[in-house]
Structure formats: C-alpha cells, structure tokens
C-alpha cells in the first residue's frame, strides 16, 4: 500500500484485480442472488412498489365486486378474468416502477457497470418482479374467496397463477428495461407489453376459468402446456436480448 498525502492508505485488494470467480456458474448465481436480495431488501424497507400494487389490485377487485353485486352468475363467470385484470395491471405498475426507480436514481448505470453477465441482472430483476406479483396475488386470492365466493385457493389454480405471473414478469422485465429509456415510459410499457403478453394471458385466463368451472384436465391441459411453452420462450428471448436492450 502507498501512503497518501493525508497520511492515510487506500484499502488494497488481496489480489489485484478482484479475484476471478471460482466458477462461472457460481459467479452467475451469486450475481442473480445479489440483485434479488438488493431489490427485496430495498422494497421491504420502502414498500413503495408493493403498496401501490396492492392498493391498485384491491380497488380493481372491489370495483368489479360492486359492479356485479346483484348478478351472482356473472360474478362467478368473470372471476378468472377479474383475477388476471388485477394481476396484469398491478404487475405493469410494479414493472414500470421497478425499472424507473433504477433509472431515475442512476443506479441502473451502477448495475450495468458491474462485471457480471448482464443476463444475471435480468434474471435477478425478473425474479424480484415475479415475487412481488406473487405476494400481491397471495393477498388478493383470499379476498376473492370472500367477495366472489369462488374456490380460489386450489392447487391447480395456484399453479396457473405461478406460471402466468412468471411469463408476464419475464417478458415485462425485458420490455420495462426498454421502455425506461423513453420519456413516455408509463404509457410505453403497457403499449409494448400487453400485445406481446397476449398468449400468456389467454392461456392463464382460460386455464384459471377451466379450474374454477371444474373442467376435466384434458380440457385444461392445453392451456397449461401453452403457458409452460410461452414461459420458456419468453425467458429464453429475454435472457438473450437483455444485454442489447440496456446498452445505449
């Protein structure tokens, strides 16, 4: 170490530069977990994202409930649709904020400067967004049970919720990182995201409706398979494209 003019020393690395990671896969998942931990820690402290998503979801559920209060049959028929309306709109709100906070505070540049495969940043952010969507659903589903008198807490429906929100968060995180560079990003994200996410939404709504109507697995399985297929495609495309999307 070298003595500075103020009589202090710069903390030096044990080996210079930063020691290479023991394994590429290990370094990759360490970066993913670091990004995820950072998003969760910051959010559970500020609650900016979750509170906005939750309040919005509750409002949607309540408004639909009031609108359909006297028509029990209609309320039961549209339950799956209302569930996914709340997921989509609160999810879009969360996706927009998740990336715009990084951009506005300049921390997106800090993330992109780190020597990790940028897809690890994408995976960490997408996992965070997915978890936030799932947390909101975990609060909203019991509310549905009470207000809509629907058996929302069945395992197969939860599987559709998990897969549908995964597909939406995976493509949404990629498109939010594109939209964040635009001045009209609040409008841009839904315009970009909703058409692209249509296959996931159709499969999620149809599959959820099928479960609630207690249709046979043969009828539901096509939507389940479609959802799995689109989740894999969206994750793969986003994984490959993220680096190009975030660079100027």
């Amino acid at each position: 170490m070298t003595q500075s003019s103020r009589g202090e020393r710069l903390p030096a690395a044990n080996s210079s530069p930063a020691a290479p990671a023991r394994s590429a896969a290990g370094a990759y998942w360490r970066a993913v977990s670091a990004v995820l931990w950072k998003d969760l820690a910051a959010e559970f402290r500020s609650k900016e994202l979750l509170s906005a998503m939750l309040v919005f979801s509750l409002l949607v559920v309540l408004i639909f409930n009031f609108a359909l209060q006297l028509d029990r049959a209609a309320r039961e028929n549209v339950a799956a649709g209302v569930l996914w309306v709340t997921a989509v709109f609160s999810g879009t709100l969360g996706l927009n904020r998740s990336l715009s906070q990084e951009k506005d505070r300049g921390s997106l540049d800090g993330l992109l400067l780190t020597p990790v495969d940028r897809s690890a940043i994408y995976v960490g952010k997408a996992l965070g967004n997915w978890l936030f969507m799932l947390l909101v659903q975990a609060v909203i589903l019991p509310v549905f049970v009470v207000l809509y008198n629907q058996p929302m807490l069945q395992p197969l429906l939860l599987v559709f919720v998990v897969l549908g929100t995964l597909g939406y968060a995976s493509v949404g995180t990629l498109l939010a990182s594109m939209a964040v560079h635009s001045r009209a990003r609040d409008v841009m994200l839904p315009i970009l995201l909703l058409p692209v996410a249509v296959p996931v939404l159709v499969a999620a709504v149809q599959g959820s409706a099928g479960v609630l109507e207690q249709r046979a697995w043969d009828e539901i399985s096509q939507w389940f398979n479609l959802l799995i297929g689109y989740d894999v495609i969206f994750l793969a495309v986003a994984y490959m494209a993220f680096d190009y999307v975030v660079e100027e």
């Binding site: 690395a13 044990n14 930063a18 020691a19 290479p20 990671a21 370094a27 360490r30 970066a31 977990s33 670091a34 990004v35 931990w37 950072k38 820690a41 910051a42 959010e43 402290r45 500020s46 505070r105 300049g106 921390s107 540049d109 800090g110 993330l111 400067l113 780190t114 020597p115 990790v116």
Partner: peptide, 25 residues
Amino acid sequence: QPLLYGDLTAEENLRFYARMYGVSD
C-alpha cells in the same frame, strides 16, 4: 451521480457491489 440505493444502508450498498464485483474480503 452516486449510483447508490437510497433504501439500503451504506454498508449494504457496499456489500451489494462487493458481491457483484466478486470481492469476498
């Protein structure tokens, strides 16, 4: 611009970047 996270502590910010840079010390 400081490129930091306001909702993390000073130590948490540095720990996060240390993990991203592979600094284990």
